[in-house]
Design a protein around this nucleic acid. Sequence first.
DNA 1: CGATGTTTACTGCATTCTGCAGTATATGGT
DNA 2: ACCATATACTGCAGAATGCAGTAAACATCG
Lengths: 216, 216
Amino acid sequence: MPEREPSITGYLTLGLLAGRDWSAYQLAEQLGRGVSELWPSADRGRYAVLNRLHSAGFVETRQEHTGKRARTIYSITPEGREALAAWLRTTPRPPTLEFEGMVRVLLSDQGSLDDLRATLARTREQALANREMFARYAAYISETGGTFPERKHLFALANTFMIGHYEHVISWTEWAEQQIAGWPDTVAPARTHGGQVHDMLAPGREALAGDHATDW
Amino acid sequence: MPEREPSITGYLTLGLLAGRDWSAYQLAEQLGRGVSELWPSADRGRYAVLNRLHSAGFVETRQEHTGKRARTIYSITPEGREALAAWLRTTPRPPTLEFEGMVRVLLSDQGSLDDLRATLARTREQALANREMFARYAAYISETGGTFPERKHLFALANTFMIGHYEHVISWTEWAEQQIAGWPDTVAPARTHGGQVHDMLAPGREALAGDHATDW
DNA sequence: CGATGTTTACTGCATTCTGCAGTATATGGT
DNA sequence: ACCATATACTGCAGAATGCAGTAAACATCG
């Protein structure tokens, strides 16, 4: 066995198993909830990760049954705990964003102003829904302690980030909608708009001087 | 040929080709610059995308030479332009985040307080560097018009988002560092901290009542 | 003028991940 | 008794990643 390093999904799995045993199905379901806004993964992949954790010796399995239907229960091994702790001592990769809507903004000179408006509106709606979801989590945790009370202090940190993140997306879409309000189309504004640095920096910040290889 | 839909990287490629012809190498390089903070892709994949665009009839190729060394120049076809415009009329997927650092925060009860502090510090540094990069782009574009002056109004929209995004990451890390300052370790605070809803919501916002299946 | 390092210009390969479909049992409601 | 939904996964094709590798052109320095 070549004993490769687990993926982030693998470490998330180990993190859940650190608290209690879970079935494969439960793990796959749990990793599709809120945490998928922080570390997305396909349902299919979550099962594959379990097999790799198993052959690396980081988890053990046992079978349970409900009538004829089997399910596999996973538990973490001491090696699994050590692998998780060792990973936490290493350096994280920077966060990455996959923002299809913003790609559409950049390419919107190849489409209509209505396309651009629709992209902004849709992005805003999606962010509103997500902000609401995390606000509900926050309220639920503060009222009841939540489903994982032993980690509520950590969920609080993450919840705050997520709410602020969607808040930022929402306020950006609103600002962008105002910006494009006076545009005749998606092409012409390059001649009159888009160069004002004061529009482009957060309040109170000034443009930085210095090197820049190129833009975008 | 089954004529599948291009990926987002494919549409980005078509978007660049809409302005002028590019070589494969130039395209691969360009897609690794700023736009990769919005739509990440591996160098290797950008070449594969070109082959798929070609077999779909969305781009055409010709060969140029520098001495013995060949390079392939790509241009967009009318079908490619139409595919891009048609895509812009469809609905975008919501933005997704891949935030390894926040996964570590969630699992930090399996590690030390120093691990958590290091994660926050590293995340802050990375975000500072990226904010600076986009601030430089913004300054460069406002001074010179930038490398793509015909799209500067669109880059301005995206630049503003990116600066605000990293700004949010930075201020969250600073807030989180304050939050954990008084913690004895990564486990105990669940008993005393982490439940205060007022810490967890942006200023002026109240917790929303309503249904919540579960947290995280 | 030759050696060395960097940029240009890609391709191959193993592994992983995604997305979709499919299978089969159990449970709850009308 | 029937049907929808939940449980509990597996198979497969295609796409993406990460790393390594090849080779020519160009710049720089002694």
